[in-house]
Design a protein around this nucleic acid. Structure first.
Lengths: 196, 196
DNA sequence: CAGAAAATTGACTTGACGTTTAAAAACTGA
DNA sequence: TCAGTTTTTAAACGTCAAGTCAATTTTCTG
């Protein structure tokens, strides 16, 4: 009974992981159900036992990614450290997560036409929630007078953009490993907010 | 004779523009030849009179965008102003170009699987050329001791990322217009490099 | 204005891929 | 072991879009 359900849930997750990986590589349209399935050594027909259709499958992957990133941020949020250190840590976590998971970042870019209105609303809301953690930290820093005063929304977007772009240029073959890159990026971006 | 060729070239350009716009909206796979054609009130058959296939058409669009951005940078490069001002100007130009043209930015992200090896090489090379202008400015600033010393490649990527991301969040409905956004972003990003 | 060249059309072919379905296989609990 | 249930499969279907091409229209030129 519960065993069955657990297996079902586990398989579902496996499929989502497969989807995330392949879509990260080839984009939504470039990824076929066949691709996702064969990656797990099953036939594409099976996918429909777990998900209504491709859109739903991809949507779930997206949500999964977002929820995980949010969890990351919550963990950082809870730490009891100076605000500047907290923001720096958030940056490091964000970048390493991005590079380690190679997360279906592709999808995060203009998902507008891939999903239904309802699905989009959910995605946008989660994205916004994620961004809010950064706003919060920035505002805290401003209040504590360690960050210079600015429009936290814009600063947040600058920071997120600089970080997200890392997937475009980072190569594991370079001199720096993921952690070092994350540190370097965080160091540079702290300069955007910190008072001098 | 030359008239003919001019018309041919002009039509080709029109098609490229159409392609750029639609692909910017719907992505490569989401855009059909039919879409590109009907946008110009012609049939898709005509497209094949001008371009060998879809890949070639899209490739040309991409090149067109890149060449135009590079022209922008060359113009900035030639200006006789202080290096810090030059970099700031480059940033402003980059962001306004991005937002104004809504350029087929979509394509610029992981075009890996859309193009042939040869095509990719050309794209990567142009991208790199573009990035080099920024490296140059950053290095100049370091030499003149107005920018603090860092790895210019990484700083360049941070800056480009922060700027490119603007297409994801900027809404013309907001308070700031394109120029203001460009200025604000440039101001913030200057803090990454400038000595304090 | 006539003939040639260029440009456009639209119907057709082809292949790919999402989705459905009926049957087979695997699994579960008694 | 076996009946019943869940899961997987293989094949087929329908759709959609890329690419082709012979026929037609438009444009140019002498």
């Amino acid at each position: 009974m519960t065993l069955r359900k657990k297996k079902f849930a586990k398989k579902k997750e496996e499929i989502l992981h497969s989807a995330i990986n392949i879509i990260a590589e080839r984009g939504y349209h470039g990824t076929t159900m066949e691709d996702i399935a064969s990656n797990l050594f099953i036939t594409k027909g099976s996918l429909y036992y777990y998900f209504k259709d491709k859109q739903e499958l991809v949507f779930q992957s997206q949500i999964m990614l977002l929820l995980r990133s949010i969890d990351n941020m919550i963990a950082v949020q809870l730490e009891d450290i100076l605000i500047a250190e907290k923001l720096r840590k958030a940056m490091r976590v964000h970048v390493t997560y991005l590079l380690r998971e190679r997360s279906g970042f592709e999808m995060m870019i203009q998902p507008d036409h891939l999903f239904s209105k309802q699905q989009l609303e959910e995605i946008v809301s989660l994205r916004e929630q994620y961004g809010t953690y950064f706003d919060q930290m920035i505002n805290d820093g401003i209040e504590e007078k360690v960050f210079h005063v600015t429009d936290s929304k814009i600063v947040r977007n600058i920071i997120l953009g600089a970080m997200n772009w890392v997937t475009q240029w980072y190569s594991p073959k370079g001199k720096k490993d993921v952690t070092e890159i994350a540190d370097t990026i965080a160091d540079h971006l702290m300069r955007v907010v910190i008072k001098n």
